[in-house]
Design a protein around this nucleic acid. Structure first.
Lengths: 262, 262
DNA sequence: CGTTCAGTTTCATTATGTGAAACTTGGTTT
DNA sequence: AAACCAAGTTTCACATAATGAAACTGAACG
C-alpha cells in the first residue's frame, strides 16, 4: 500500500483512468489507453467497462473509442453551482469586464494549480466550458501568485513543492527563492502583477479574493498586452478589481464560506 | 432516484455518492448524506474520505460540509470539449439565437434523460454552467421527443421504460402508447413541438441533429410562450433551425462522429 | 488458410471493501 | 460537574470484489 494517489483504492484507480481519457482531449481507443496505463489489459478493460456503464465515459461503437461521458457534465453542473466561486461572482465579473473592457479571469486554487472557473472576454461575448475548467501554473500567472501569496505557510510549502518552475519567458521566476520574495512583495502590496511571466506580451493585474478570516477563496485578474497597455496603466483598474474582489468575498462569506472563528 | 450504483462495483457506489452530494445542490453534512444513503456509516465515511482525497469532493473544515470538488470541473472541461456537441455547435447556436430572438436550447440524450449542453437566451447574453448540465425529462420536452423519435427501437424501448410519465400539465403524454404515436408523428414530420407538455405557457419547436447514417447526436429547440407566440408562429423558425441542425450534424460528422458504414 | 493484432472472457488467487460495534469529541441537559 | 447525547472516526474479522495471466474470439491482411 503506497502513499501515492495511485496505489490505494479502486476508486482512485478508476478516477486515474478518467484523467487519462480526459488527458487525450479526443476520443481514444482502448489500446491507446492500454499503452499509457500501468494496469494489465483485463484490469483496464474492466475499469473502462464500469466507467462506461456508469456514464462517466462514452463509448462510440462505430469508431470503438472512449471519451469522457455526459454524466460528468451533469456532475460538473452541480460542482459549479455548489462549490465554485463562479455563480456568486458572475455579476461582479460581468460588471468588471464591462467597466474595464479587458479580459477578466476568475480562478481558484486546485491543489497546486490554478483552475480558471470563469472568464469574460470583452469583445467575444461568450466563452463557455472552453474557458471554465482550464488549468494553468500557479507560480507564473497573476491569479496564481495572488493566491499563493496569501496561503498559510504549510499549504504554500506544499504548493511550491509541486511547481515545475519551467521558464516560459525571460521574466518567469524559476526558483523557489525568487518566487518567495515576489510573493512577499505581493502580500505586502495586496495584489499581483504578471509581467509577461507566462506568455510574452501578456500582462495582468490580479487581486486575491479573501474571507474576512484571511482564507484564500480565489483570485481575479484583468489581462492586457504590452502592445496596448503598461503595468502602470493597468493600475487604474485596481480600485475596480479590488472592489469586485471584496464584493465577491463578502457575498461568498455570507453564503457559503463562513469562517470558523472571528 | 436513479438505479445507478446498485450491487455492482465499488466505483459505481462511489459515483452514487457523488450523485447524492451533487443532488443536494449545496454543501452537505456527513450526517445528511448518511440519512439518505443505503450504506452504513463506516462505509459511507470511507467513500467520502476517498472522494475528498481524490478531489472529487471538497471538504470545508470550518462548516464540516462536503461539496462537489474542483476535479470535476477539470474533468468536465474535457468532457465538454471531447464528447459534447456544444463546442462544435456553439457558432450555430449563437447565430440561431440572434436570428430568431428567442431562447435556444441544445440538448443531448443522457440515458433516458435530456441533458442540456448549451443554452442561449436572447435577452440575457450569457448563461454558463447554470444552464449547461441541467437535466430534464425526455418524454415531455421538445428536444427529448425529437431525439426519442429517431432512436432505434431497442434504445427507444429502454429509454421509454425509464420515463416517469408524470403529468406535468394537462397536455403531458402520460402513457407509452400516447407517446409512441406522438413519436411516430414526429418521425414522419421530421421535427417536434412541445405543446405546453412540461410547463404551462411554454411551447417550443425542436429539431433533431442526426448523422447521415441516422444516428441521433442531439437536438435543438427554439422556445417561446403562449403569450407571445403560437405553434404555427414558431413554424417560421423551422428553416433556420433545420439549417442549423444540419450544419451542426455536418460538422460533427466530419469531426467526431463519423458513421461506420455509409 | 495461417498470422497478427485489437478486443473480450475466464478463473483461481488475494487484495479490498465491508459494516457492526466500539470509541472519541464536543456540545447540551440535569 | 457528572451524565447524556449526537456527530464523527477508528477498528477488525469476514466476505466480496478486484486482480491479471492466460486463453479465446474475430476481424483484417496476405
Amino acid at each position: 500500500m503506497t502513499e501515492r494517489g495511485q496505489g490505494d483504492g479502486t476508486v482512485a484507480k478508476a478516477l486515474a483512468v478518467m484523467d487519462e481519457v480526459a488527458g487525450f482531449g479526443r476520443p481514444v481507443r482502448f489500446s491507446e489507453l492500454l499503452d499509457r496505463s500501468p494496469y494489465p489489459k483485463a484490469t483496464l478493460y474492466r475499469f473502462v467497462q464500469v466507467l462506461t456503464k456508469q456514464g462517466m465515459l462514452h463509448f462510440d461503437p462505430d469508431r470503438q473509442t472512449y471519451a469522457p461521458g455526459l454524466r460528468l457534465v451533469r456532475l460538473a453542473h452541480a460542482a459549479w453551482q455548489t462549490s465554485a466561486l463562479a455563480p456568486i461572482a458572475r455579476r461582479h465579473v460581468d460588471a468588471l469586464s464591462d467597466a474595464v473592457g479587458e479580459t477578466v479571469h476568475l480562478a481558484q486554487l486546485d491543489g497546486a494549480q490554478v483552475l480558471y472557473v470563469d472568464k469574460r472576454n470583452a469583445r467575444q461575448p461568450i466563452e463557455m466550458f472552453s474557458a471554465a475548467g482550464k488549468v494553468g501554473p500557479a507560480y507564473c500567472t497573476g491569479v496564481g501568485k495572488a493566491m499563493l501569496a496569501f496561503l498559510p505557510e504549510a499549504d504554500l510549502a506544499r504548493a511550491i513543492a509541486q511547481q515545475s518552475f519551467h521558464r516560459f519567458t525571460d521574466h518567469t521566476y524559476t526558483t523557489e527563492a525568487a518566487l518567495r520574495s515576489e510573493l512577499a512583495a505581493i502580500h505586502a502590496r495586496g495584489f499581483a502583477y504578471d509581467r509577461e511571466e507566462h506568455e510574452p506580451g501578456i500582462i495582468c493585474i490580479a487581486h486575491p479574493i479573501l474571507t474576512r478570516g484571511g482564507r484564500v477563496l480565489g483570485a481575479m485578474s484583468v489581462t492586457s498586452t504590452t502592445a496596448r497597455e503598461t503595468l502602470e496603466g493597468l493600475d487604474r483598474h485596481l480600485p475596480r478589481i479590488r472592489a469586485a474582489a471584496e464584493a465577491i468575498a463578502a457575498e461568498a462569506q455570507d453564503w457559503r464560506f463562513p469562517d470558523a472563528a472571528e
